[in-house]
Computed example of a mutant assay.
Amino acid sequence: MNTYDLTQQEVAQILKNIPTHIVDGFCTPVFVFHYENAQRLIDDFVNRRDAMPTLLPAQFKFMLAKSGLDIAMNTLLEALQGVDIDKYAMYTAYLNGARFYEFDKTYLMYDEIKVKLTEINAALDFSIAELKTMWRAAAAF
């Protein structure tokens, strides 16, 4: 068993990341009673926190611009605005606040729109390792 010195805020963050499922329209947590599962959840949080820095706004924009993702994402957002205003608002807000998110959440967003991004520019097909490298490089900016 690994032990960590976590703040109350970090423990709250771990609890927010517990998987949930929808029951009668309400989001209900799936509680982790199994020690190995609970340990994996905590280990994943600590490893992410240590490995992938939170980026400042300029750093995040730098990463997007250096990789070429900014142009493709802007193209997608413009097209989405006329089709699905809810998703447009969600993605725009996400990109504007992405510096507050962990790498894994940013990667999930990238993975969700990867097919459309690569249709715009095939060079935007990045592996998770390549994205981690860009994230860390932007943090040093």
Rank of each mutant, 00 (worst) to 15 (best):
K116F: 08
M52S: 06
M90A: 14
R136V: 14
A138T: 07
L56T: 13
Q9P: 00
T75M: 07
V83H: 12
A129K: 06
E119N: 08
A137Y: 02
D104F: 04
A89D: 15
T118C: 14
K16R: 15
E119M: 07
A12S: 09
L15E: 12
I71S: 07
D70L: 10
D43P: 07
S67P: 01
T20G: 02
E36A: 14
Y91T: 01
I18G: 00
I22G: 00
E112R: 13
A12Q: 10
K16P: 00
G97P: 06
T92L: 09
A12M: 06
A89H: 14
T3L: 03
A140Y: 05
M52Q: 11
Y35E: 14
M109W: 10
K114H: 12
N37Y: 06
Y35S: 12
Q13C: 01
N2A: 13
D111E: 15
A58R: 14
E102P: 02
D50R: 14
L80E: 14
L80D: 04
R49P: 00
T106N: 12
E130K: 13
K105A: 05
L6S: 02
P19Y: 00
D5R: 12
V30S: 01
Y110Q: 06
F126I: 03
A129S: 10
T3P: 00
T133E: 12
L124Q: 09
T3K: 08
C27T: 07
Q59R: 14
F141A: 09
V32F: 00
A58L: 13
G97C: 05
Q81C: 10
N47S: 06
P57V: 09
E102M: 05
Y88N: 09
S127M: 11
K105L: 08
D70R: 10
Q9T: 01
P29G: 00
K114Y: 03
N47I: 05
G97L: 09
L69K: 08
A72D: 07
W135K: 10
I113P: 01
C27G: 03
L80W: 08
G25E: 12
A65V: 07
N2H: 10
I128L: 04
I22A: 05
M109R: 09
E112G: 05
T92H: 04
E10A: 01
T92K: 13
M52K: 07
L69I: 02
I128R: 15
N96I: 06
E112Y: 06
L55H: 11
D43W: 09
F33H: 11
M63W: 11
L15C: 03
K105T: 07
H34Y: 10
T28D: 00
Y88E: 03
L80C: 11
D50I: 01
Q81K: 15
S67I: 01
Q9L: 04
